[in-house]
Design a binder for these strands. Structure first.
Length: 348
RNA sequence: UGGGAAGUCGUCUAGUGGUAGGACACCGGGUUUUGGUCCCGGCAACAGGGGUUCGAGUCCCUUCUUCCCAG
């Protein structure tokens, strides 16, 4: 009796090939389109219907069962609301990490299991081996960063088939199998919501007012549209020109002020020490961090850790070997031991 | 409105007689399952009016505007 696998199919190439590989491997595969967002936003059409149809077409091509799970309500609560709340307090959240934690590897998993699945699968470029999360073979596409908050119990039920391949191979396989999504452009932007600018998205849900932009000398150099829209390291969107580019180096939500600097060496732009909260370890809490490293954003290079210490129940402190640019509160720092993802936390 | 200085793309600025270049911003594209970064391309100016000159952003006159020092 072959095992039942429910594959999250987004209508993109990666999840299409994921499903195809599982079929080849002899699993009894069911494709599932998760409908997490369907609302159009000003100037942007939500592509959920097209994506759904692409996923469905691939399912038909592969001859697998196909269904849709409607998680809109939960996604709105667990992901979108979280995102809005974080921005309102001045942080810069990573909604896709929350989406994986709460929706794909919890809600989807639970629902699938309830409906008879033995495993779930997704099109992430990462690997699961013996309940451990590893980076993808394609180091350039490795998406383990987005998965560090997934529980071990969920990983035990998870298959990530394309983590063993390089992206170009996936494209090639899709083409040779004649999948309709073979040439489809990779999706970007907030998971499910589409390539809506974050500002346009947030502006639908929060109210903001203009405030001052202050440079490194304390000069008022312009007006912004609301401090919450800006994030550390940001250059575009300030509307302030002249000479060198300005980067956001800080903000004060109470005063509604955004601080910028045209000095790339500005201390506020670089961090060697990170304070993390909401730590999550996939396996046991590590006791020794020798030789381990940390990643502070997707696709960024790993920085060796000098030391890691737990300050109290909530806070951990990491010392890095090198300075990292634009570490931002609300973003995630993920700790790696070579290819192994140990866990991580949210930057305070 | 007394004296001085200055007015070049939205902004900062190069260019002191031969038909205006760069940077930033902005717009578009590329990279990217977060924000952001980064890469490529594009848009765009000589404050107005007179002169001198074969030819003026560059010299002269004038108007306007701004800044500084004096009030």
């Amino acid at each position: 009796m072959s095992k039942n696998v429910f594959v999250g199919m987004s209508g993109g190439v990666d999840s299409s090939v994921t499903a195809a590989l599982l079929v080849k491997q002899g699993y009894n595969v069911t494709g599932v389109y998760m409908k997490n967002w369907s609302k159009d936003l000003p100037g942007h059409h939500c592509p959920w219907k097209e994506d759904y149809q692409d996923a469905k077409r691939v399912a038909v091509q592969l001859g697998i069962k196909f269904k849709m799970y409607d998680f809109e309500k939960e996604y709105r609560h667990k992901v979108v609301q979280y995102m809005i709340d974080e921005y309102e307090t001045g942080r810069t959240p990573n909604p896709d990490i929350m989406c994986n934690q709460e929706v794909k590897f919890k809600l989807f998993l639970d629902t699938a299991i309830e409906e008879g699945a033995d495993f779930i699968a997704t099109g992430h470029y990462s690997r699961v081996e013996n309940g451990k999360l590893l980076i993808g073979i394609d180091k350039n596409k490795d998406q383990s960063y987005f998965l560090y908050r997934v529980k071990k119990s969920a990983l035990d039920k998870t298959i990530l088939p394309i983590g063993n391949y390089e992206k170009p191979e996936i494209r090639k396989m899709a083409k040779s199998m004649g999948l309709v999504t073979a040439e489809k452009k990779d999706s970007q932007g907030i998971c499910f919501v589409g390539q809506v600018g974050i500002k346009e998205f947030l502006s639908q849900y929060v109210k903001t007012s203009p405030g001052r932009i202050i440079d490194q000398h304390g000069n008022d150099i312009g007006e912004h549209e609301g401090a919450l829209y800006y994030t550390i390291g940001q250059r575009q969107g300030l509307g302030v020109g002249g000479g060198l580019p300005y980067y956001v180096v800080g903000k004060d939500m109470k005063k509604n002020e955004v601080y910028v600097s045209s000095d790339l060496q500005d201390k506020r732009l670089w961090s060697k020490e990170l304070k993390l909260s909401n730590m999550h370890w996939i396996g046991d809490k590590p006791t020794d961090f020798k030789g381990m490293s940390v990643r502070t954003r997707y696709r960024a290079k790993l920085i060796p850790l000098e030391s890691v210490s737990q300050k109290n129940n909530k806070t951990w402190q990491l010392s890095l070997r090198d300075d990292v640019r634009a570490v931002t509160s609300g973003q995630s720092a993920v700790i790696y031991d070579g290819e192994l993802v140990l866990g991580g936390g949210i930057v305070v």
